[in-house]
Amino acid sequence: MTLDLSTLLAILAMAAATIFTRVGGLVLIRYVKIDERRRTAIEAIPPAVLMAVIAPTAFATGWAEALACAATAIVSRRLPMLASVVVGVATVALLRAAGL
């Protein structure tokens, strides 16, 4: 297997962009006063991103995926992100096994 120089540069540029955005967010948040309204908005981001990732699959496939998406959306309001994903995966697995 060979590695093209342009591919390597693209991978390094994407890694640098990822690191920059993560570290930049941590640095910039120090200068923002977090009141209750902003805290609520920030806490709403992970479930919103999760739904944005799984919703297209839920609507483009069958009932099992749609119901699992709904279950994930419901539990993501109370559970951490990883637990919400586990609930979604378990739900779709059980519904597929049941024949939906």
Rank of each mutant, 00 (worst) to 15 (best):
L94F: 11
A93T: 14
A58E: 06
P47C: 14
A97L: 14
A71V: 02
R96Q: 12
V27L: 15
I74A: 14
V87I: 14
A10K: 11
R39D: 05
V86S: 14
A98C: 12
V53T: 13
P80I: 04
A60W: 02
A17Q: 11
V27S: 00
A17L: 14
V32Q: 03
P80H: 12
A70S: 07
V92Q: 00
I34P: 03
V89P: 01
V23H: 02
A52G: 15
I42F: 15
E65W: 05
R38S: 11
I45N: 01
A55G: 01
V89H: 03
A73R: 00
V85F: 15
A41K: 10
A60L: 10
R38Q: 06
V89S: 07
A55C: 12
P80Y: 02
P80C: 03
V87Y: 06
V27R: 05
A16K: 08
A68D: 04
V89I: 14
S84L: 10
T21L: 15
V32D: 00
P56H: 13
V49R: 04
V85D: 09
G25N: 13
I54V: 15
A70P: 01
A48P: 00
A15G: 11
R96W: 12
V75K: 00
G62I: 05
V86H: 02
V53D: 09
L94H: 07
T40K: 13
S84Q: 08
D35L: 06
L95R: 06
A70F: 15
I11N: 05
L95H: 08
G25K: 03
P47W: 12
A58Y: 06
